[in-house]
Write a protein that binds this DNA or RNA. Structure first.
Lengths: 329, 329
DNA sequence: CACGATGCCGGAAACGGTTGCGGTATCGTG
DNA sequence: CACGATACCGCAACCGTTTCCGGCATCGTG
């Protein structure tokens, strides 16, 4: 069916080794024969088999990406960046979506590991011990999660969170409600700690609700609880929940931005179309993805140097829009 | 490094052929030795090399998916479905995002073709001749695009479009504005034809504007043109544009749903958080993805039967929310 | 006992490339 | 002219599986 190296060799009246070298190792072969081989190969429509090449090289030139939910704008933006950067470097991306099922993460990671040269695990929910095991057995970079002894790139939310709390306090809010994300989520833990510290520092009361799934529907449910609690300022685990809250509050006739202030986290494109526009903590999702790829490829090239794996940290900032305002009592 | 079949064979004092059979073709081997092999293989942590297996089987058990923009909710929803269905069938998904660059589509498709058993091309912008060439050289299913002689699954928008126009007319609108999507987009062509037919049938005037990129920013620009033209009813190429229009109109103090009616296409999750909630034509994106996978796998199994490739068509319906209302003059 | 059938297993050839090593011209130099 | 260096190319092994084919026991049957 497909034309093989041997076919080209036959047509050139050369050995497969020479043809192979002519096409991939141009130095080692006569310039004349090389151009002849190249021409004939082109004419015959030869394309090398990646599989065969992988078998001998031991590399597949592809990386695996595991995300909790590709439909979540944060992860789709990140995925886009991962794909773009990987392609720039000559790698392709195998995608796995766990649909927020923590138990599937390990399985997916292990499956991908056999097909890819390395793995990027985005916001994994699995516990540290198992993640460490994955990291030991395969080249791995964690995004949005730190794991001892493994490479990772995370987002430091404390600064943005502090800005957010300070801003709310300056608007007159003394009691702030945090809507928790998935309980197994590392970043939820980070955000909780950050908001807690920020509340202490700014002398505000913190009310925690949740956990809620990072989805609009869950946010709508959360809105009812929020209103029941009589909160005037809300910071949600992410934009999806925040948007759900806003949508539900609007449904109930509550004026967001006046009667109640809502802050999201992500700065997804949606936050610019919601009404009112959503005040949110900007998360550099694209940068996260691109950096994760860079880290992974570095790791692949530097073939198992047992030096301490790198841990990178990206910054956040608060983006103020219309969903927050002066406290009215 | 990794434990190979030969290592297991040595440990079992058997030949690789027997071990191979014991693990994959359980009938052909003594039950006793089989269980022994299985045990030893497990103890040694043996995992078969997918690459080596692919080399002989000729299959990679993965499919390639090419999308114009994974950050677009329509495609991320579709991708999610593709991934889920593929995984159910034992396949993994290699993702390529062209970032709406039509010229890259062919290249991506050809690259993926070498790594995957088959391809799904979602909403390709490339011209038919080149797509047909792709389809001839590799197992391909087109999603959201019909190509002569190739398998495809598309969404028939005429019904939904007709509902939409009829609905707008019943609200008193006599002139309807259509915001075109990418000019190379097949589905944009479909939608234009559908709305045109619907307008003729319902005796409404049609005003076409565009083209606009399917992004919120482009929709915001579109809003200014819309307002300049004095239109009272707008149907946008997709939800992203519609949301951009709404956001910009809100910015300018125009009350969407009262002064002007806006209809999107997609029914993405965003349409439920926008304010007002976006009336939109529901597109079965997940179903589209899942069906494309089914078609592709059928095609792979039925190994080149030269029967006419299947063309499937999914239905749409109008979802009425708050962004549309009676015409006020 | 002899013989064919049957059940298990091993040898070896694929699959399609890459690469170390050795062989053969060709050339320059003493 | 002889010899060593050099540039090119071919042979064959190898990557890790699968699978065809044939061999050897074992068993049942005539």
């Amino acid at each position: 069916m497909a034309v093989r190296l041997a076919d080209v060799a036959a047509a050139c009246k050369l050995s497969t080794s020479t043809v192979s070298r002519a096409l991939s190792d141009p130095e080692k072969v006569n310039a004349l024969t090389r151009s002849r081989v190249e021409r004939i190969a082109r004419e015959m429509g030869y394309v090398p088999s990646r599989v065969a090449r992988s078998l001998v090289s031991g590399r597949t030139d592809s990386i695996g990406l595991v995300v909790p939910d590709i439909a979540n704008p944060f992860f789709s933006a990140m995925t886009k960046a991962v794909q773009a950067r990987a392609r720039d470097k000559g790698y392709s991306v195998i995608l796995a979506d766990t649909d927020e099922r923590a138990v599937d993460e390990l399985d997916r990671a292990r499956t991908l590991d056999k097909q890819a040269d390395g793995l990027i695990l985005a916001s994994p929910r699995t516990d540290a011990a198992q993640l460490r095991e994955i990291a030991e057995n395969s080249q791995t970079v964690f995004a949005n999660r730190e794991v001892d002894g493994a490479a990772s790139v995370v987002i430091d939310e404390s600064e943005g969170m502090n800005e957010a709390v300070q801003y709310l306090v300056s608007l007159g809010h003394r009691s702030i409600c945090y809507l928790s994300g998935p309980s197994r989520s590392w970043s939820n833990l980070q955000r909780r700690e950050a908001i807690n510290a920020a509340c202490v520092a700014n002398e505000a009361e913190l009310i925690e609700l949740g956990p809620f799934e990072p989805q609009i529907q869950a946010g709508m449910r959360a809105a009812d609880v929020v209103q029941f609690k009589g909160a005037t300022a809300v910071i949600a685990y992410d934009d999806m929940i925040a948007l759900g809250v806003m949508a539900r509050l609007a449904e109930r006739g509550v004026q967001v931005g006046r009667e109640i202030s809502v802050i999201g986290i992500d700065d997804s494109p949606l936050s610019e179309v919601a009404y009112p526009l959503l005040t949110t903590i900007h998360l550099p999702g694209a940068e996260l993805g691109a950096t994760a790829v860079d880290l992974l490829l570095e790791q692949l090239d530097s073939a198992a140097t047992d030096s301490e794996p790198p841990r990178l940290c990206l910054e956040t900032r608060l983006v103020i829009r219309g969903s927050t305002g002066l406290r009215v009592s």
